[in-house]
Simulated assay, not measured.
Amino acid sequence: MDSQRCVRTGLHYASEERIQVTWSPDGRIDSLLPGEGEETIWIAPGLIDLQINGGYGYDLNSLPLTTDTVIQVTRRLWEKGVTLYYPTVITNGDDEIEQILRVIDAACLEDERVGSTIGGVHVEGPFISSEEGPRGAHDSRFIKAPDWGLFTRWQAASGNRIRILTLSPEWPNAADFIRKCVSSGIVVSIGHTAATPAQIREAVAAGATMSTHLGNGAHLTLPRHPNYIWEQLAQDQLWAGMIADGYHLPDSVIKVILRAKLTKTLLVSDAVYLSGMPPGEYETHIGGDVILTPEGRLHLARKPELLAGSAMMLLEAVQRLAESGLCSFPEAWDMASMLPAQAMGLTDYDGLKRGARADFVLLEKREGSLRVLETVKDGHSVYRAEG
């Protein structure tokens, strides 16, 4: 890489000062200096999506899964400013989950840049609640109690890439299972749960540090208090993942989560393969028959009040949250970049700082939307917009 390609100039996404970012061929930021120019191009850390099932017609949970599907998903995410993501493998048969994990691992080995963009795998289920509501759109046929032998088999199939596990602590011996996961370097996230407050507290004491799409994957009606949502909000050790697509959570609930969790709030897309697709009726692995409305709401055909994942990518979720007035644009961006890195213990993903990985995006702010002009991953330009 020549020195010309190692320099970018733009407005810092948070300070709004014009900066010049330089980086070395090893993919680390060398310096941030005052920049020159008049263009209104913004520079921001790359987005990190901790929960995504696919997009643009590419489904990471349907078999047969190919390495090309994983590669194509990754390339489309570069177009949306994502420089690190955790493909999310949801509730399925034991063998099917193993097959999917093997393909993701093979894709990482086949394409080095794809491998560096996949920070790990997020396994969401099948160790979740079997109850209607908390189960969400997950297939009840495959839900089961936590099984360490099965999980280690999956971990081996993944090439040791499983980094996040969503489970419900309502199962007997869940705390022991959580401790084994944590000692193995797995981030345990509480989700799709009907657990009691005591079980939530026991899970946190065992090492759970995250809540999966808090406020969703829940009963439609809950006791006013206590309940598992209040309890997770009250646990300071838990990072709160949330979907800010305008359908999963009302703005009033997002406001409460932001106030309760302060700087421990994470934006995730929870995008399924229908993200970026036209409205209509579809069939999905999770949920079966679903309907994508013209407004972008994705719900079960049999039960419209239950959502079947999100059809909005992380970039658009950041824009929507910032426009809601609940937080500033830099705060919304950090919830989808800097804070996920902190939640995952990724100390070298430190944003726009000297010595940090050169993972960043160049943006153009248009009225009501954000346009990614370029995505830089590990110091390499992996996407440039045409025109």
Rank of each mutant, 00 (worst) to 15 (best):
W239A: 03
I229L: 13
I143V: 13
V182G: 06
G133S: 14
G191Q: 03
T209G: 06
T166M: 05
L220P: 02
L167T: 09
D147Q: 07
R161L: 01
G217P: 09
C181F: 03
A156P: 06
D139S: 10
A218E: 12
T221F: 11
A175W: 06
L165P: 05
I186N: 04
W154P: 02
V187K: 02
R141I: 12
A175I: 07
V188T: 07
P146Y: 08
A145G: 15
G191L: 01
G133L: 14
C181W: 02
A208Y: 06
A205E: 14
A156N: 10
D236G: 00
A174P: 10
M210Y: 09
S130W: 10
H138P: 14
I229A: 03
S129C: 09
R201T: 07
R153E: 07
P223K: 10
D139V: 08
I164Y: 05
I186Y: 02
W230F: 05
S130N: 14
L238R: 04
T166K: 03
A174E: 11
A234K: 10
W171R: 02
G136W: 06
A145R: 14
A157M: 11
R224Y: 12
P226I: 05
V187S: 09
S184F: 07
P169R: 00
G207Y: 05
R201F: 00
S140Q: 14
R179L: 08
A203Q: 06
S140K: 13
V188L: 04
I200V: 15
L233S: 08
W171I: 04
S189N: 05
H219W: 03
A156F: 02
F177V: 14
Q155R: 00
T166V: 03
R153A: 10
G159W: 04
S158L: 06
T221H: 15
L238Y: 00
R153N: 11
A203S: 08
L150R: 15
N173P: 00
T209R: 12
S140R: 15
S158P: 07
H192T: 08
Q155T: 03
E170Q: 15
G217A: 12
T193W: 01
S129Q: 12
S184E: 14
L233V: 02
H219N: 06
H192Q: 09
F142R: 13
E131Y: 15
D147H: 11
A157C: 11
W239C: 05
A218H: 08
A145E: 15
R141V: 09
I229N: 01
I164T: 06
A206L: 07
S129W: 13
N216H: 11
A194E: 13
P134N: 14
